[in-house]
Design a protein around this nucleic acid. Structure first.
Lengths: 229, 229
DNA sequence: TCAAAAGTGTTCTTATTACACCCATGG
DNA sequence: CCATGGGTGTAATAAGAACACTTTTGA
């Protein structure tokens, strides 16, 4: 084997940390590996990148195979490339995270998985490969990003209450927020559209429903507006 | 060729955006390519990752070959993996940036380069591959990071004046800062050690010299301190 | 004595925090 | 009528922004 060939004796994969929110905890969608190595262990969904496929496309493909979803929020975090991270060869992986609405689909284990299941981020067990480390990096990045960009909405249904939004931020940031201050701040950003609708069928005063106003946000961005929770 | 083999018909490289500061502009160290493709064009220093080499190690190696420096600030940004980003095959690259003190070395073109030279970040010409895009990503990340972590000091000599530090921040953040407010803020963080020394040989009132106090910063971090310019 | 950059405080404005009660609904 | 979560305002404090003059040195 020539020297150049040996450089090409390696592969790359993508791993996708799919975040969801069930109203209480921040969740991550894990698969149980259906093939060695680490058969039976929980892991992040991922796959090798096809030779003629962009890495972003590969990440979208992994997401779609597992959830059926297209066009959801997806962001690359970084590459993981320790020599021995994969027991069967040299495989560098590119980590992504996605934000999905848990009600939009039922996870269907893709070819590479025995099963797929939501796990609370706070109580994730030991995962295959270096996936705990990857999850941690994605979580750190999400925490930062959610404060400076209006991406939290990606985890909520199109219509939501302010309390739901607050609980989402509390779950992601792992902190408690003051109800009045949170509402004041989020409403003062002017990117929520008051739908003039209220919850139905709840055993308490029904809350108003809001919607994220993407158009208005885009317009504000052009004027130099910054989102900042 | 089997299907599995075709997955392994690819390589990965690292590219390292080496930032420096000359007192005025933020600089980036570019090489002029000595071999095809893009022979003669300016590019980011980079190299293929050896089969038995961690990607971080590869980035350190590229840096050392070009500068002779070890142990300097180095941070991964992200991977670039469009199918056609490299004209000769499928090559994914992992982008890093480093912060160096320009006075510590003279760049020596490594084997892969005809020459190496500092360029002002603001006036970088068209580079080889997708390197303009990579540079842009690293710059964006540096801008964010420099505000929340005391890494600016990595670009300055061990002893520096507050005005030099301010000019550095102005160059990175592409903004003007108020002298009094900047000094108040940076001194209130208590991570600068006043050396009780002053500049010599300047045709104006000599400035006091300061040093970044890494130990004190580390101690503060443990107490939950956050750096924030 | 001039030019050039160093050094220094105060006021005003804005953002952040802390905090407690009444309201609407379903059971 | 009770339990549950929804909804609201103000005062105190802290952080950020704006701003001008005196000092020290070398030429």
């Amino acid at each position: 084997m020539s020297e150049v060939d040996s450089f090409f004796k390696s592969a790359f994969s993508v791993d996708n940390v799919i975040f969801g929110f069930d109203g209480g905890d921040l969740k991550v969608l894990l698969i149980q590996r259906g093939a060695p190595p680490y058969k039976g262990k929980w892991a992040l969904p991922g796959d090798l990148v096809y030779p003629n496929e962009d890495i972003d496309t590969a990440a979208e493909r992994v997401l779609e195979q597992l959830t059926g979803l297209k066009g959801v929020y997806l962001e690359q975090v970084k590459a993981f490339g320790a020599v021995n991270r994969h027991p069967l060869g040299r495989v560098i992986t590119i980590a992504y995270y996605s934000l999905v609405k848990t009600n939009d689909f039922q996870p269907t284990p893709a070819s590479f998985a025995q099963s797929a299941q939501w796990h609370s981020v706070g109580t994730v067990e030991e995962l295959a490969f270096d996936h705990n480390q990857i999850l941690q990096s994605c979580l750190t990045q999400l925490k930062q990003k959610v404060r400076i960009a209006p991406i939290g909405f990606e985890l909520l249904p199109p219509k939501f209450t302010l309390t739901e939004l607050q609980h989402l931020y509390e779950a992601i940031l792992e902190t408690e927020l003051d109800k009045r201050n949170f509402r004041k701040k989020i409403l003062s950003m002017n990117v929520l559209h008051d739908l003039d609708e209220i919850q139905a069928g709840v055993a308490h005063r029904p809350a108003k429903l809001y919607q994220f106003d993407q158009e208005r946000y885009t317009r504000f961005l052009e004027e130099g507006y910054t989102f900042d929770v």
